[in-house]
Each structure stands twice: as C-alpha cells, then as structure tokens.
C-alpha cells in the first residue's frame, strides 16, 4: 500500500474543502472496499479524508411518506430500521443479502453506492483493465466471464456493479443528494451510475470534489409488497450471480402497480422498465410473469461462461413474482 496523509473532518464544509484542496484525495467511510483496493494498489490516494464523524447518520421520515437516509448510516442499521422493514422490505432484504454482518456493521450507505466492481481482472494489477487504466484493454473479454454482465456492457468493459442495496434503491426511484463547495445537487440513482461505453474508468456522475450526503427514497405504496431474491454460488456471503428486487400489487387479478430491478447482471443496478411495462395491467399469471421476464432480458448478451445468467435471471424474476403472488410481502 502506498503511504498517504490522513485528516478527520467534523463538518460537511470542511469535508468538501479538504477534497477540493487535494487532487488525489479520497473520502474514507467504512473502508471495507477502499482499504482492500488500496492494499491491492488499485486505489492509490495521497490523502484520505475521514468522513465518519460527519453528522450524516440520521434516518428521517419525509412528508410524502418517503425517507431520507444519511450517507453515513451503516448498512446494518438501515436494514434493521422499522420503517424500511415495513414500507420497503425489499430494501431491507437486499442489504441483508449483501456481504457479512461484520461488513454491514462497517459499510456506509454512501460507500455502498461508491463500491467498485469485483471483476477479478480489475483487482489484478498485472492484467490490462480499461477501468483501472484507461485504454489498456479488457482482459475479462475472452477470459473467465462467469461473474460478468449480460446487459449494458460494452466492448471496453463487461464488469458488473456488485451492490445489492442499490438494486432495491433503483427500483424505488431513490435520489442521491451530493454536495461540493459549489452547492448541493440531486441525482436520480438511475442516472448516478454510468454504463461503461468507451469510458469504463468513469463509473458515476459524482464529480471528484463532491460528497454524497444523503439518499432519499420517495413514498412508494407498492413497495410494502416487495421481496428481494438473490442467487449465488453459496447460501450466504457471496456476490450475486443474479438478483431480483420486485414489488407488485394485484387488484382483481391484474397487476395494478409494479417495480422491478436486476442485480449481478449489469454495470449498474438495472431497472427493468420493459418488464414493468409488460406487466402493468396484465393478469397476474405465470404467463404474464414469463412475458415480463422475456422483456427484461430481450437485449441480454452472454460472454460464454456467463450465458447461463440469461435464463437464470429470467427464471429468478418469474420465481420472485410468483412468490410475491402466493406468499405476499417479505414484511
């Protein structure tokens, strides 16, 4: 690991001033991903600005029955919050299906959004990687691709975004609030992570001098009827091969409201708008669920080792909707 300077800040103004003053500074939250990447020499900051003492650890209910989550709320605390468990059970489940209890106790909400891909070639500094070193090439393409993307990839990068939490958040139309010396702005989570295109090293819309201060989730009545399902190589403590966040309300046998998103399959948390459109107003049947899943995966492309994910995602989406229909919400 490269040597670095360290500063702990106690208010947001100081934090954004400190990051603006140092071209190669990084914010340090729980450190669960950043410290690991520094040890691998993938991240090489000159300065770490420790933000864990900032007063950004509140969870507040909003007038529209939504919720405002401070960027430094720990993953475990968010998952256990009574409002999340009853109003947005798929968000609670998504968080609880990620990492381990120890890591969830350390990791922050803002850090979860900023975590980087677990593509093995990105971690291996001996392998060319367009994300790690712009223009150096992609070793994953034509390599071992079992964990890689089937949606939204490019000829420059096929890495997936590893978050579970963000999959549920994108289905809920969450908004990310960010702050710099120039003020505050709000970015819909759906636009926060970028597709790789020809610039896979630029992963988010966050500018280098901006700090995530909060995530807001609007009131989404259908979210009370939701579940998160994750398929992985072992029963717990592994990244998703495929995951599904699903919320569905059925009235008189027809789908009257629906939210769907996929994880483990794309470079960003993947909102399945086409599947939602296919399902809205349709009879709540196995056939409709299948058509929705086909719509969600219509543009999917396998890389060889991960071809199985296309059918797996399809079946997982159908199974999640079936379980919502027969057993109801995870709340």
């Amino acid at each position: 690991m490269k040597s670095f300077s360290y500063v702990a800040v106690s208010d947001v103004e100081d934090a954004v001033r400190a990051i603006a003053a140092e071209p190669n500074a990084k914010f340090l939250g729980g450190g669960t991903n950043l410290v690991d990447l520094m040890r691998e020499n993938v991240e090489r900051p000159d300065v770490l600005v420790d933000i864990t003492r900032l007063p950004l650890n509140g969870i507040e209910e909003l007038p529209d029955s939504g919720i405002r989550i401070g960027a430094l709320v720990r993953n475990s605390e968010l998952a256990a919050h009574p409002v999340i468990r009853t109003r947005y059970p798929m968000l609670s489940q998504a968080i609880l299906h990620g990492a381990s209890a120890q890591l969830r106790n350390m990791a922050t909400v803002g850090g979860n959004l900023m975590q980087r891909t677990r593509c093995l070639y990105f971690y291996d500094s001996a392998s060319p990687c367009n994300k790690r070193e712009q223009g150096s090439g992609c070793t994953a393409i034509g390599g071992f691709t079992r964990g890689h993307a089937i949606l939204g990839a490019s000829e420059h990068c096929i890495a997936t975004h590893p978050s579970d939490m963000a999959v549920a958040l994108v289905a809920l139309d969450a908004v990310v609030e960010v702050r710099s010396e120039h003020g505050t702005r709000r970015i819909p989570l759906a636009d926060f992570h970028r597709l790789p295109g020809s610039t896979p090293h630029i992963e988010t819309e966050l500018a280098p001098d901006e700090l995530i201060t909060a995530v807001e989730v609007p009131g989404v009545p259908v979210a009370a009827m939701s579940r998160y399902r994750k398929v992985r190589d072992r029963a717990s403590y592994a990244f998703a091969l495929v995951s599904v966040a699903a919320a569905m309300e059925v009235r008189d046998g027809r789908v009257s409201a629906v939210r769907l998103a996929l994880g483990g399959v794309a470079p960003k948390p993947w909102r399945a708008h086409e599947a939602e459109e296919a399902l809205l107003g349709a009879p709540a049947t196995e056939e409709s669920f299948g058509r929705a899943a086909d719509a969600a995966l219509a543009s999917a492309v396998g890389q060889g080792d991960n071809d199985f994910k296309i059918d797996l995602a399809r079946r997982t989406l159908v199974a999640t909707l079936r379980r919502l229909l027969t057993e109801g919400s995870a709340a």
């Binding site: 340090l28 669960t32 864990t52 106790n105 350390m106």
Partner: peptide, 15 residues
C-alpha cells in the same frame, strides 16, 4: 460492542 473485521479497519480511524 459491535462486531467488525479488524483487517479492513485502518487503526487511525478508531482513535
């Protein structure tokens, strides 16, 4: 009182 992984914790953060 809360369990964490000490390997990913930078000591300087826990003053």
């Amino acid at each position: 009182g809360v369990r964490i992984n000490s390997c990913l914790a930078l000591a300087v953060q826990y003053d």
